[in-house]
Design a protein around this nucleic acid. Sequence first.
DNA 1: TCCCGTTGGTTTATTATTTGAACCGATGGT
DNA 2: ACCATCGGTTCAAATAATAAACCAACGGGA
Lengths: 283, 283
Amino acid sequence: MNRANTFWTGEETPMGTTSKALTLLDYFTISRPQIGLSDLARLSGANKATCYRLMSELMEHGLVEQVAGSKEYRIGPAVLRLAALREATVPTREAALPLLQALAVATGETAHMSHLVAGQLVTLSYAYPAAHGMRVMMEDADRLPFHSTSSGHAVMGWLPADTVAQILAGPLPAPAGLVQITASDLADRIARARATGWASTANTFEADVSSFAVPLFDAQGQVQGALAVAVAGPRLTEAAEQTIPRQLIAAARAIMALWGGQIPPELSALWRITEQPTEKVQG
Amino acid sequence: MNRANTFWTGEETPMGTTSKALTLLDYFTISRPQIGLSDLARLSGANKATCYRLMSELMEHGLVEQVAGSKEYRIGPAVLRLAALREATVPTREAALPLLQALAVATGETAHMSHLVAGQLVTLSYAYPAAHGMRVMMEDADRLPFHSTSSGHAVMGWLPADTVAQILAGPLPAPAGLVQITASDLADRIARARATGWASTANTFEADVSSFAVPLFDAQGQVQGALAVAVAGPRLTEAAEQTIPRQLIAAARAIMALWGGQIPPELSALWRITEQPTEKVQG
DNA sequence: TCCCGTTGGTTTATTATTTGAACCGATGGT
DNA sequence: ACCATCGGTTCAAATAATAAACCAACGGGA
């Protein structure tokens, strides 16, 4: 009797064929938008033939397509239909966008919103304060690491303990030239995020960038993502450190009002205390 | 020995598991955005257990999610990441949108662009001429029938013959109270679309709506979709019938210039003849 | 309150599908 | 002319998917 196919993930629980196919999609990122067959097989650890068949099936449905010349694969047009359908069903993105823009203007910094999807934190919208000037740049569809971003900390503060443990079980990537976060430091930060209702980091994800974040909840009171402001290092004044969390809270409240999101009572109390007289962010 | 599993599609070619899972996604539409397990099993003809497992796998990856109260499934947030990635890789939608808007304004009617994805024609962008007034309404992520829309005719005119045959092999749905298109009529319309470079229909898809369409091509000269203008019946003057095809052609040219789309020489010649002195649609 | 049909979800042996190593022809660099 | 690599294919061996029956829970209707 042979071993179960642990080649793929190293897990012992067998992985459904569909999951394997969908896992392949995860290798496509902003920085690697096109992948050839052999590369993909190497990246995923799957057999080339397997990879080929799975990609063929994904291609049949338009989830991926092959670029004409090189035969490399890339994300296909079908996802546009699905995304349009998703937004029509649950208008998270579009509804929140004006509020995100208002937040960017109010703070004078880059604002972004990330969503928790399949255990990962993905940036899905962002807004800049103005058309020009120095700013922290964002990219859509980028995955944020949980351990080195304020968004990650804010989210983990309100995630079930076992889910957090699962995330922390993964490796802590070591960012070159940045502030390194140790495991115990991280636990501390998560606890603080929960205790204060917001999180902040400095120079942990990108150099000379500080960021502040608050969690976002869905209608069932489950964490759904985070709202964050990324401040360009030189502009991080003491005043900014005071006001930004408040503005974040106000904006998060407004966004969740749109979604029908439920703020956990515990957090709601924290936010009531923190949110001193400050003008509301208006959409 | 049992028969191969022909239950699913009636086809004799066996269907990969991944395809079966992805097929389930097709049952989610604008008009039916949420589906319960039993319903989905009935709709798809799949076994309930099968359906359950497939949906579970899709759910693991965030392609679908369950709404909290009813346990019904709906399209999940992961598609947003994929769509953002797609647009970052191949900016079809966003790039064309301003031109689409210009076309709507120029014609004074609703303009829309549909894409060919996995053998289906899906509306992915549209633009209205003004904020108010009578207009033909569109919906994103809607599938257009090939046989009763000008977009369908325009596209089929430039599709390989066998692909067209495959499409026509399907049933011709009978729209209630509209002009019925017979099989021979349809063949005629497709031929005309190819011969003239554009297609038009009246009262075939929606009552009191006429529409005009031209095909769109990708960088390899393959039909990729259609650009169309839908005219509210009462406004369909003879002048409009003259100018709209020209405006469509101009806009299609502009859009394909953005994509690097290749117009087949045969069509290019047709369009050169048709496109008499008329002001270019400007993005 | 009892019934009955429905729901989402689970279990099982049976069955068909997926898998991986080897192989192919084409392509491109040296 | 060579070698390495590419995308794609083949086939027996091993695996995972399937379908029917079965739950418990829910929601009307009588």
